[in-house]
Design a binder for these strands. Structure first.
Lengths: 338, 338
DNA sequence: CTGAAAGCGCTAACAC
DNA sequence: GTGTTAGCGCTTTCAG
């Protein structure tokens, strides 16, 4: 066993035609091959269980139909929704998506970017928050530059820190709008549950919220930083409950953290929204049915994946283009107002 | 622009060494190359922004470090969790995962399987329920067979319908156990919310539940089939509420459908669990915090991804091996008992 | 330890 | 129309 896979040469021999003819019949342009030879070739291919070798094909023609997608964590619904959107768009273009998950580790991000470069895909999409680390950014750029110089295309879905096309989420603005709405609803003692300081998403959303709050109401929000996850949200909420029991509304930097926060409240016997209101960010679809309904800032996640692919497949506009995405505040029962 | 990427030949020339030496220094075994030439080569490579061409490499050495993963829907947490588990395991083996999402369309599954074959990956993992369709199964097998015959490995995470290694989830057993527990809790008028009949997961879970129920209590469960999703669950629940308002417990074939069912109850003013109890299947992690806590059958999703990779990388045991996975009933507040 | 040269499977000129 | 042949970028004998 482990016999080698049938090659085009095998097929050509089996069909009694030349290599070139076999290639044309199987993978090349239509009509050029006489019907009889065409059929004979196809029959031979079927008999041999032949499948073209994509590696060899793309070497010979110097181009692939692969696009790489790099995400922080594929198990996170934020990224899996983006991935799904991008995959759908890719299918329409006949492209194959190579999806890699970095687990949020910067070194791994570099490794995977390198791996994607090696695959010589047509394009690479980087989804996932940039971190505030010049050295890492420089290394990233060092990979991106030769790739684009060689004709590869790169886009990012994140803060615009790299010299590539990027789908920019207006995190500040979204959080700011949310803060304004919450202040309007009569809340006065806010807390912000953030992720690690180095994550730009986290920083932007917090800063946006603070700005929006200061503009609309008095009372400085308290902040608690934890891991960027459901459990982080839970821990952050517990700290807030311990240290600032009078807080009346909590903004968690994303829905997952908000989920953890709500769970923490439940465990402590703190009622949401009667005792404390909770809001998140992203509008993860599986979370739309939690109770009480979670107020959040809706992001068009799947659409963002599609936009990134469009950017990366579109005209090469020399300069790094920006496509801005705005979040829309969605008020639900978790913030009924006072 | 669009200058071609630097090749090994370029590097060799730049470093003033032979192609073979450059190859050895950059990608081959260590020590064989004298330190000086080694360094000179690396320097040249860095200067040129050289990255090996993986396609060419794997052509030359006749093997890849790609493994393909085919899932129904990457946006579904069931699959994204499996994918994450598999990706983690793949990383440990230095393998790259090529993730493809079929959207549940059988034709697309075939197309993507073919694409994965073309990529000549080392292995392919098929995750996702098989459907009850002999023709489709035959076509699938027709792709799998030549791939394995040529030394490729294939594993499935699903019902064992294909002649390949498979991680088999004991859906019947899990549902059966759940039924027994619910009967024990005193429920007497059950309903089952299923997906399309052709989906084997759906069928197995329903049949398991029915069997378990009949063994433990009287009263035949009513069934409602809808789409295999949150919205399907909602619709199915509405129908049950309309046609069998006396139902006291509902088993939804998976957590997503259960979520939809709970939402439908809320909209109708039917209280869960006071008026009707609800249970799901899978134990999706983001759904562990819904209220009331959802009774379900826990599946080790990430672990299943890892197991599939182990199978596919392990000794080729000639015969299609089976690794059975059992679900564990997790009782939560959505089924407090009567 | 280093270099020359033969492929890996396929496409794309280029001839016939 | 169809066949021949020269690469695509790299690894790997096989000689030196």
């Amino acid at each position: 066993m482990a016999a080698r896979a049938a090659t085009l040469t095998d097929v050509a021999k089996e069909a009694g035609v030349s290599l070139a003819t076999a290639s044309r019949a199987l993978n090349g342009s239509e009509r050029v091959v006489r019907a009889e030879l065409h059929d004979r070739t196809l029959a031979a291919a079927a008999r041999l269980g032949y499948t073209p070798n994509a590696q060899a094909q793309s070497m010979a023609k110097g181009s692939t139909d692969l696009v790489g997608l790099l995400v922080n964590d594929i198990a996170d619904p934020y990224f899996s929704t983006i991935a799904a959107g991008l995959a759908t768009a890719a299918e329409e273009h006949g492209l194959l998506v190579m999806l890699c998950s970095t687990g949020g580790r910067p070194e791994r991000e570099l490794e995977l970017l390198a791996a994607l470069r090696r695959q010589r895909g047509r394009a690479i999409v980087l989804a996932g928050s940039r971190i505030n680390d010049r050295a890492h950014l420089r290394e990233l750029a060092a990979h991106v530059e030769p790739f684009t110089a060689a004709g590869g295309r790169v886009a990012a879905i994140s803060e615009p820190r790299l010299p590539v096309d990027t789908v920019v989420v207006d995190n500040r603005r979204g959080a700011q709008d949310l803060a304004a709405r919450l202040a309007e609803l009569g809340y006065r003692r806010p807390a912000v549950l953030t992720g690690p300081e180095r994550l730009l998403v986290s920083r932007d959303r917090r800063d946006g919220f603070l700005a929006g709050w200061r503009r609309s109401a008095s009372g400085e929000p308290v902040c608690a930083a934890e891991e960027f996850s459901r459990d982080g949200g839970s821990r952050a909420m517990q700290r807030v409950l311990d240290e600032h029991p009078d807080v009346d509304v909590v903004f968690a930097i994303n829905d997952l953290m908000a989920l953890g926060a709500m769970a923490a409240c439940r465990e402590r016997g703190v009622r949401v929204p009667q005792d404390v209101a909770v809001a998140g960010f992203d509008d993860i679809s599986t979370l739309r049915d939690v109770t009480p309904g979670l107020t959040t800032v809706r992001l068009p996640l799947a659409e963002m994946g599609r936009m990134a692919l469009d950017l990366v497949l579109g005209e090469d506009a020399e300069k790094a283009r920006r496509r801005k995405v705005r979040g829309e505040v969605v008020l639900r029962e978790s913030t009924p107002g006072r």
